[in-house]
Amino acid sequence: MSLISTETEAMHRQDRGAKKPIRLFRNLNAKVAALPMIFTALVIFIGCTLWTIYHSFTKSRLLPAPEKWVGLDQYERLWSTRRWLVSIENLVIYGACTLVLSLVIGFTLAALLDRKIRGENIFRTIILYPFALSFIVTGLVWQWILNPEFGIQSIVQSLGWERFAFDPLNNGQIVIYGILIAGIWQGSGFIMVIMLAGLRGIDQEIWKAARVDGIPAWKTYIFIVIPMMKPVFITALVMIASGIIKVYDLVVAQTSGGPGIASEVPAKYVIEKMFEAQNLGQGFAASTMMLVSVLVVLIPYIYLQLGGSRRG
């Protein structure tokens, strides 16, 4: 029978299969290939984070310099700096408004697009395109649109409402809302896409059942669909939240933190302390505070995820 391998070939390979390979070298190629990932996870994500946290307790102004342990001094200084307090206040306002508006706008638009309309693709393309742009581009466009001399304010005034005033970029009281408009414009399309995917994931028979039962559409959304989309909402929430903390380029482009320090945000504070003010310790302390605020959102999320998978 010619279709049977020769004895010599078999003898040749005899000893290789019988020997138990050394554990570390099994699958060696895969381990080597995964080195960049392991490096990123251990050295960058864990190592660098711990390094920053450690140095936030020292009195480093410029590295390399002898580190002097100062305990919580940097944090005390941080929380008594007006600029930081303004940053935090802005982050809270911007964050709360972005969360609520993104979820409401995102879900509403997704629900409208899910009504089996014509031209769904066109509407989706229009609503999502700002998300493809750089925050710098977004910030500069809205800086121009909100320009008091030529922008919205002057247009409304020229239409007859001469006392109309909307000049957020030069008014410290409301400047953060000017940034908010730009932020929502750019980001809400993304939330809409997530929501739309969630809506499409819902069993179409639910709609048939609701129709047979004679439940109006809005009631179906509120009492049936939204509760079913809880995981989607949580995901969207985490996405929005992690975007909020990163807000930096938008502010740099739109207002440069001004007028004065009225539109400062934490991410900008950190970068400036580290790379302009040469006050590293402050930068480290401020960035550690940013990490803490992320953990406040993330830990319940991890807990939910792990709890969910354990039940599943």
Binding site: S5, A10, R13, Q14, R16, G17, A18, K19, K20, P21
Partner: peptide, 15 residues
Amino acid sequence: ISGRNVTWAEPSERG
């Protein structure tokens, strides 16, 4: 397999 111990051999080496 075919008189060879292939316990730790690669799939392609097992015949």
